[in-house]
């Protein structure tokens, strides 16, 4: 995974991942949880967005399997819907491509590529979420 550098817009998010927290946005006006990159609320248009830690639990919305041209293991990546509602584009780890299913329960982990910020990835949840 390419090492990522924090920038002014992502600094707070990566400060969270460094602590092992997955931060999302929460609208101060209507309470809606929003994806980290949102700059205004998708529901009410509010711009007072606070950072808040998500539980890290989610479910698979969609995924793709990308063959590795060099013959290594394929990359599995896709969309996770967090328990709080927002969608994230993520890498899946510890998964077998053939075992991926829509709605699969997953949970966040953090990988720390050398020379870069900690990045959230998702693995199958260790216990089924209700």
């Amino acid at each position: 995974m390419t090492p990522l550098q924090a920038s002014p817009v992502t600094a707070e998010f990566f400060a969270g991942t460094a602590r092992g927290e997955l931060l999302v946005r929460r609208c101060a006006d209507c309470g809606r949880h929003l994806a980290p990159r949102c700059v205004s609320c998708e529901v009410c248009g509010g711009t007072d967005l606070a950072w808040t830690a998500a539980s890290g639990a989610g479910r698979v919305v969609s995924w793709t399997v990308l063959p590795d041209r060099a013959g290594g293991p394929p990359v599995v990546a896709g969309i996770v819907e967090l328990a709080e509602g927002p969608w994230l584009n993520v890498r899946f780890v510890d998964v077998v491509p053939e075992a991926m299913t829509g709605g699969l329960a997953v949970e966040v982990r953090f990988v720390r590529p050398e020379g870069g910020e900690a990045v959230p990835v998702f693995a199958p949840a260790e216990q089924t979420l209700g």
Partner: peptide, 14 residues
């Protein structure tokens, strides 16, 4: 791409 939100998509493989 190593910075900004899109870099996270790229890191994911997207």
């Amino acid at each position: 791409l190593t910075q900004g939100w899109r870099a996270l998509d790229v890191a994911a493989g997207l």
